[in-house]
Nucleic acid binder design. Structure first.
Lengths: 136, 136
DNA sequence: GCTATAGAGGACTATTATAGTATACTTTTG
DNA sequence: CAAAAGTATACTATAATAGTCCTCTATAGC
C-alpha cells in the first residue's frame, strides 16, 4: 500500500548525494541518512546498475550522481528499487483476478487501476532532484 | 506498493453484490468471487461495520448493499479495508524519517507524497459502483 | 419455544515480502 | 603490495498479509 522503506531510503540517499554535490563514500552516506551501512551499500548498488549514480573503487572511492539533477526524478529512484508503481496486482503480468467479475473478464477494475497508476508515475516523474535541492 | 489482496477481494465482493442486486449469503458470494468462505466472511464483516453493506442473520439471511450504488465508491471499499491510501509512511502518524534531509526536517518529500496520495484518493472516490455495474 | 441456518467476533496459524546482515571477493590508488 | 573502498550473493530475522478455526448470537420457520 505504500512504497517500501528501501525505496524511501533510496530517495534519501540520492537526495544526500545531490545536495552535497561531491563524491561521498558509503560510510558518510550511511551516517548522514541514518540508513545502516550494509543496507546503504545494497541500495547504492541498485542505483549504480540503474545508471543513476556512479561508483568509484579504491582509496578516495565513493559515489556521485551520474547525471544532471534535472534529469533525475523521484520516479527514477522508486522504479529502480521496486519497479513501476502499480496500484493493483491486476497490473502485473502473473496475477489473474479469480474470475467472474463480468463476462470475459478483462476485469472491470483493471482499466481504472491502470489509469491511476500511470498518473502516479507521471507525478513522480515530474519531481526533479534539481528542485528538491533548491528549496530544501 | 500495491493495495492488498484483501482490499482487492473487498472490491470484488461489493461488485458482486452490486451487480446481482439481491440479498446473497456468504457462500454464494464466496462461490461467485472465488474468495474462500472464511476470508469472505471476515471481509464482509468489515464492510458491514463501515456501513457499506447490511447483513441479515438467520434463515434467508445474507448481505445486501446498504445504499444506492452511486453513493459507493472504490475509495470507500479500499479505505475500509486498509485505511486511506498513502504513498509513503511519512504520511502516517507514527513514522519519522531518519533526519538530516534538510534543516528542521519537515522533510522535503512529505509534501509531494501527500499531494499525490490525495489525488489517488480523489480518483478512487470518483469511481462509483453504479458505473462499474452499468458498463460491465 | 426448538432447531436449522446464517452471521459475528476474535484468537490463531501459515506464508510471503520486507528489511537487514555476513562473508568472501575485486578493483584502485598511493 | 597493502589499505581503502565497492561488488556480489547468500543468508537470517521481522513484520505484514493472507487465511483458518472455534465459539457464540440472532432470526425465521415450523
Amino acid at each position: 500500500m505504500h512504497i517500501t522503506l528501501e525505496a524511501d531510503y533510496a530517495v534519501r540517499i540520492v537526495h544526500c548525494l545531490a545536495r552535497n554535490a561531491r563524491r561521498m563514500d558509503a560510510k558518510s552516506i550511511s551516517d548522514e541518512t541514518g540508513v545502516t551501512l550494509r543496507f546503504s551499500l545494497k541500495i547504492l548498488r541498485k542505483l549504480v546498475s540503474a545508471g543513476i549514480i556512479k561508483s568509484y573503487k579504491g582509496t578516495q572511492g565513493g559515489y556521485e550522481v551520474a547525471r544532471p539533477l534535472d534529469e533525475i526524478t523521484l520516479n527514477d529512484i522508486i522504479e529502480t528499487v521496486e519497479g513501476p508503481f502499480t496500484l493493483s496486482r491486476c497490473l502485473k503480468g502473473d496475477y489473474s483476478c479469480g474470475q467472474n467479475c463480468g463476462e470475459g473478464c478483462d476485469c472491470v477494475f483493471r482499466g481504472i487501476y491502470e489509469e491511476i497508476s500511470q498518473e502516479v508515475q507521471q507525478k513522480l516523474s515530474a519531481v526533479k532532484f534539481s528542485d528538491l535541492v533548491k528549496n530544501k
